[in-house]
């Protein structure tokens, strides 16, 4: 059992862990730093060379692909979105909160009135 030897002095092992831990954390994040500083631009550069040619421009996208998508369809969709977001009313708030009514007293629910009425 070699590791029992290590346990004989907790503090010295503590220091070992302290320093190696810090070094590893730093080197790990340093590695990430270096990669994103230098590695990533290089990768993107390579990717550009592999794919060649610039990205498509808007003008080059053919409108023939979507011939079935007419102006009416677009209008219907936009109408639906507009109705859903702004106009539709019957989508009520699902949160139920009992609020204190401003008017505390009403003869309609008064017990005293009920009692008096019965006596009469």
């Amino acid at each position: 059992m070699t590791h029992i030897l290590l346990y004989t002095d907790k503090l010295s092992e503590g220091y070992v862990i302290l320093f190696t831990g810090l070094v590893i954390v730093f080197s790990g994040l340093l590695l990430l730093t270096l990669f994103f500083k230098f590695g990533l631009p290089f990768m993107l550069y390579i990717y550009k060379i592999i794919t060649k040619g610039p990205d498509k421009k808007v003008a080059e996208i053919s409108s023939k692909v979507n011939e079935e998508f007419t102006g009416e369809v677009a209008a219907a969709i936009s109408m639906a979105i507009y109705m859903y977001l702004d106009v539709k009313h019957d989508n009520e708030n699902a949160i139920l909160t009992i609020k204190q009514a401003r008017k505390l007293y009403s003869p309609w629910s008064s017990k005293i009135y009920g009692a008096y009425n019965k006596r009469l």
């Binding site: 302290l18 831990g21 340093l30 990430l32 730093t33 990669f35 994103f36």
Partner: peptide
Amino acid sequence: PKLMLLGAAAQIGVF
């Protein structure tokens, strides 16, 4: 990316 090192520096609190 160099800000990554600040995240490492604060780990001194852990150790």
